[in-house]
């Protein structure tokens, strides 16, 4: 990997990291387990790996934005996450903020061009 590619990869990772919380919260109205959430986000071309998603889900649960339960399916435990009331309030606030950021960036990019 060239220096440019490394730098681009790191910068893209930083940019995406900032959007992950909102992206995850938008998919949590129905109970989801880790793998199903990865597939749901991938359907919108948002790739996220397990080592990023699972710690994020735990953190969001610790913050009270998600709730989780273990369920047994085919003799295997599976952890389902669902958005909490607090999570819904945060999500709504994030969506408003995202629209504002999107607007600003679009104008900045338009200006840059």
């Amino acid at each position: 990997m060239s220096e440019f590619d490394k730098l681009l990869s790191n910068t893209l990772q930083e940019m995406r990291r900032g959007t992950l919380v909102l992206a995850v919260l938008t998919q949590m109205d129905e109970p989801q387990y880790g793998y199903s959430l990865i597939q749901a986000l991938a359907a919108y071309h948002l790739e996220i790996d397990q080592n990023t998603l699972y710690p994020l889900l735990r953190r969001l649960e610790k913050q009270g934005l998600l709730e989780s339960i273990w369920q047994l399916e085919d003799n295997r435990p599976r952890r389902y996450y669902k958005i909490s009331e607090e999570g819904i309030r945060i999500r709504n606030a994030l969506i408003i903020e995202w629209s504002s950021i999107d607007n600003s960036i679009s104008r900045l990019i338009g200006k840059e061009r």
Partner: peptide, 20 residues
């Protein structure tokens, strides 16, 4: 708790790649 979650993730990945 984390060990169980990782174990679950591994089985999910195996199921997705190789089936049951």
């Amino acid at each position: 708790d984390i060990a169980l979650e990782v174990e679950t993730t591994i089985y999910e990945q195996l199921l997705s790649e190789y089936g049951k």
